[in-house]
Write a protein that binds this DNA or RNA. Structure first.
Length: 173
DNA sequence: GCCAACGTTGGC
DNA sequence: GCCAACGTTGGC
């Protein structure tokens, strides 16, 4: 069963236009366990950290899943387009790079700590759907994005929510 | 730039 | 295992 996600990126760092240009990219730099667990997928990865009981029960990504590309720390913040997951459970190469802020001293090639997904560009919306507008939609009120204090950068989305946002993107602002 | 809310770290 | 202190996220 195809699942749906929302993934946040600051457009100053990596935007929907960057993903369009690249075609595919590794979703690197995520340093949150819950988000990591989603991106690890269901496949057993040799040397990978064990997921907790709770994490085992949580949804998990698979190739073919689609996601909403969300621009955070942007003006306006909002959903900018769609991508597709092409691989899950890829060791995040940035954890091995001492020069980066997301370097992970505990990680080794045999036992990586952080994992990412590989994602493909699907489409850029004709307009960014602003957070304000998402908030004003009754049918979207349960989105993780809108929950108080929620700041997960990779989060599950219902099919109905995904489709509603795709539809809203076609509306003239 | 501010700051509320959250996640992580580390001393005990 | 608790929890205070600290760091980060992300909207405003």
């Amino acid at each position: 069963m195809k699942q749906y996600w929302l993934m946040k990126s600051e457009p100053d760092v990596y935007s929907i236009d960057d993903m369009k240009r690249d075609g595919k990219t590794l979703w690197t730099g995520v340093r949150n366990y819950q988000a990591r667990n989603y991106m690890m997928g269901d496949v057993a990865i040799p040397g990978a950290p064990k997921k907790t009981e709770a994490a085992m029960k949580a949804p998990t990504m698979a190739p073919g899943d689609e996601f909403l590309f969300y621009h955070s720390n942007a003006e306006p913040p909002g959903v900018a387009g769609i991508g597709r997951i092409s691989k899950v459970g890829v060791p995040d190469p940035e954890q091995f790079n001492k020069k980066l802020e997301v370097f992970e001293p505990k990680a080794t090639k045999e036992k990586p700590v952080w994992f990412c997904s590989e994602v493909e560009f699907v489409k850029k919306f004709d307009r960014v759907i602003p957070l304000d507008e998402i908030r004003s939609e009754k049918s979207l009120a349960k989105m993780v994005l809108l929950q108080k204090g929620s700041r997960l950068s990779v989060q599950p989305v219902l099919k109905a929510e995904f489709e509603r946002l795709a539809k809203l993107s076609q509306k003239k602002p």
